[in-house]
Simulated scan of single mutants.
Amino acid sequence: MDPEFRALLKRVRAELVSPAEFSAYEHLLKLVRTDGRAARDELAGVLVAPERPLWAREIAAFALGVKGDRRAFETLVLLLNYREPARCATAAHALALLRDPRTAKAAAALATNPVRTAYAVHPVRLLAELRAPESVPALMSTLERLLVARDHCWPVARACVEGLGRLGDRRAEATLVAAREHPQLRPAAVEALARLTGRRGGGTHGVRTGSVT
């Protein structure tokens, strides 16, 4: 079982309080462990059934996402924008494995939304992993906005710097130079610029949904 999924199940199990919840949880686990269309269809039904708890939708969406079932997409994007970092992280992991062509556009929309900046770390990291055409423009736009904002939101800004370094696109050079002027970002920006200018060897690996030009 995927380590991320084990962590998800452990977190969810700690939230359960009633016998009915434990029973529903065990039934979901049985579906997850069952191969075949019927099990996937029932998991997909959990995503749209009324009055299902969020934890049940999260388990179903994650399980479908890692199996490449695109019916999980909308729920995973919702969770990627959730207020709890743990749920954002697991959603990002499943979306990276899902390989849905809509993922990069959705992640870019979340990363660049100034109203949701506090929840943008995982969309930013996902964009760097996807290496899609949307990735560099979205990370540059978000970082440039944060560099001049009153609330710089340093964790998100740092994630942008690290992502741009990982992507290695020279379009980001001026933005990273500006980031280097901020002590909170300087170490990450120096490393990212070294990647861009070729002073650091090695490559990166990730899920590729497109190419950065």
Rank of each mutant, 00 (worst) to 15 (best):
L54M: 07
V207W: 14
L139I: 05
E129M: 06
L54Y: 10
L64G: 02
E173I: 14
R37W: 11
H205G: 03
S141V: 11
T75R: 13
R158I: 13
A111G: 01
F73I: 01
N113K: 09
R13P: 03
G203S: 11
E15L: 13
A172C: 10
E173M: 10
L54T: 01
S135H: 13
L167Y: 09
Y119K: 08
V190I: 13
D169W: 13
L31G: 01
A159I: 14
K105S: 07
Y119N: 01
A179Q: 03
A189D: 00
A63E: 01
V136E: 02
T175L: 07
V46Q: 02
G68M: 11
L95V: 10
T209Y: 12
T213C: 12
T117I: 09
G203T: 12
A91E: 05
M140S: 02
A172F: 14
L29G: 00
L127H: 05
A179M: 06
D100Y: 14
G68R: 15
H93V: 10
A118G: 03
A149Y: 14
L110C: 02
R13S: 04
T34I: 04
T112E: 05
C88K: 15
A96F: 12
R186A: 05
R208G: 04
L176F: 12
E26G: 00
P114R: 14
L54K: 05
E191M: 07
R208A: 10
A189V: 05
L176C: 06
L9S: 06
G65Y: 14
A106S: 08
A149W: 13
E26R: 15
L8W: 13
G202R: 15
N113W: 11
E21C: 07
D151W: 14
S18I: 07
K30P: 00
E162H: 13
L146C: 08
F73M: 05
L16N: 05
L139T: 03
V66D: 00
R40P: 01
V124R: 02
A96W: 13
P187A: 03
R166I: 04
L29A: 01
A20D: 06
A38P: 00
A138I: 10
L76D: 01
L127M: 09
E84L: 15
R57L: 02
V212C: 05
L54F: 12
V161K: 07
G45N: 00
S211K: 15
A174D: 08
T103N: 06
D169V: 07
A192W: 09
V124T: 04
S23I: 09
L54I: 06
A194E: 10
D100C: 06
H122L: 07
V190P: 06
T142V: 14
A39E: 01
T90R: 14
V190E: 05
V12K: 12
R11Y: 12
N113P: 06
D41G: 02
V66T: 06
L28N: 03
L143G: 00
V190A: 07
R116L: 11
G165A: 03
A24Q: 15
E42P: 02
R99T: 04
A104F: 11
E144P: 03
A109E: 02
S23Q: 12
A192K: 07
R33H: 08
A106H: 09
A49F: 11
L64V: 02
A188F: 13
L80Y: 10
A89C: 09
A61Y: 09
A20T: 11
P137A: 05
A14M: 12
